[in-house]
Design a protein around this nucleic acid. Structure first.
Lengths: 226, 226
DNA sequence: GAATGAAATATTGGATACGATCGCCAGATA
DNA sequence: TATCTGGCGATCGTATCCAATATTTCATTC
């Protein structure tokens, strides 16, 4: 999952491309919470028919980025502090649990994979493309959890992360937060490498909780301002 | 969610009906794990076009009941002991957590709702329709969690439950298990009514864990037999 | 002037038709 | 004989067209 085989000639389905397009718009903030997504408009914009747009929206609904109501179309789901708390609490339960399971069964190869993911993330900070940074950040997290062999839980985490990604953009941008996150990633990996399940889990939990707290307080300020 | 408003004139979309149809087939065991679902076949069977079938399959994929691979169609996801462990572990993390949150903010109305759900479940045992029983069992669980006001976590639990429903049928059928489950439900509700968060959480966890253990051991016997 | 109800418009849901891709197997080739 | 290539059939992915539903507009009534 983290290190996909990367087919040289990558042939995507139109539906997948549309889904990526819309997701990027939402995560990037171009479509704010509450924004109505008109199938026709997207279809015309991208020069495709409405069918792949509809199917893309269905996928995005599963990821929690939009809400679809019958005959009323898709609306970008709102971005509230309560919502963020909801998402992050669930993540805080699952991720530390999974990393313990992962450490219990991981091989040296898995450690190497995580290390590579960490290095990729590190290298990307210098370039500073937020989209890429978010992707590599998550790649590191999944690399840690991958050996747990829990595809269902991982899928759940994936959707939680997709929804939370919009929030993370608030927090991942400031340089100070980036260097803090990097240091935490390094600490987590160090404990991981030593197969210290308890410590890794603890650090990971704190890492996620800190980010969550930062984001929630930022959102609450925003909501109060409105 | 638990006590849906039950619209008098119930107008469903074709996609939703198809999704229900396929889900019932899967949960009921008519489509076993690994079974290929042909869009055309379903469409012909129900007298609809392939479009709603496709969209139904997309939803079922989000619920984890099927896996879709590009140009290769949908396959009913396998039913393994590992998979069940994966699903139930995630549930065991989320559900006790949510019930604590629920108790912290619930009203007397919420307690009444849970009590009604318990009574409905109780009444259904006599009739013994497994599909109805499964539905009401879950309705009771969601009634307990509803006051937590955590829609995202609830949605996750919903998908976990949908996937696990197939397994639960193994365990929910025997009469002995039913009476045990009912007693546990009563105990849970009693602690819930008294707003004893710790005890409710503990009982709920044990309730789910017992069911999980039963199912996993049954699956392992099955796998060993093959 | 506000509320109600009915046509008009916009938007989504679904059906049919066509094009793209995959898996299999016969036949060619080494 | 074993392997590779190319074609065939089956199945999925997408476009175009039609139907059903929701929303808006506007006339009508109290």
């Amino acid at each position: 999952m983290s290190t996909s085989p990367k087919p040289l000639l990558q042939r995507q389905t139109v539906t997948a491309m549309v889904a990526e397009y819309i997701a990027a718009k939402i995560i990037g903030g171009d479509y704010p919470g509450g924004h109505q997504i008109r199938q026709e408009a997207i279809a015309a914009e991208l020069g495709v028919s409405r069918i792949p747009v509809r199917e893309a929206l269905l996928q995005l609904e599963a990821e929690g980025l939009v809400v679809i109501r019958t005959h009323r179309g898709a609306v970008v789901s709102d971005l509230s502090a309560d919502d963020a708390i909801d998402l992050f609490d669930a993540r805080l339960l699952l991720e530390p649990f999974l990393v313990k399971k992962a450490i219990a069964r991981m091989s040296n190869q898995d450690i190497a994979n995580a290390e590579r993911a960490l290095q990729d993330y590190e290298a990307a900070i210098a370039r500073g493309d937020p989209k890429e940074l978010s992707r590599l950040n998550w790649a590191f997290h999944t690399a840690l959890l991958e050996p747990s062999m829990r595809p269902r839980s991982m899928a759940v985490l994936q959707t939680l992360y997709s929804s939370a990604d919009r929030y993370l953009r608030l927090q991942i941008e400031p340089l100070k937060a980036q260097t803090k996150a990097l240091q935490e990633h390094r600490d987590i990996f160090e404990a991981y490498r030593l197969r210290d399940a308890v410590e890794t889990s603890r650090l990971l939990k704190k890492h996620v909780a800190d980010a969550a707290e930062e984001i929630v307080s930022q959102l609450k300020r925003g909501e109060a301002a409105v």
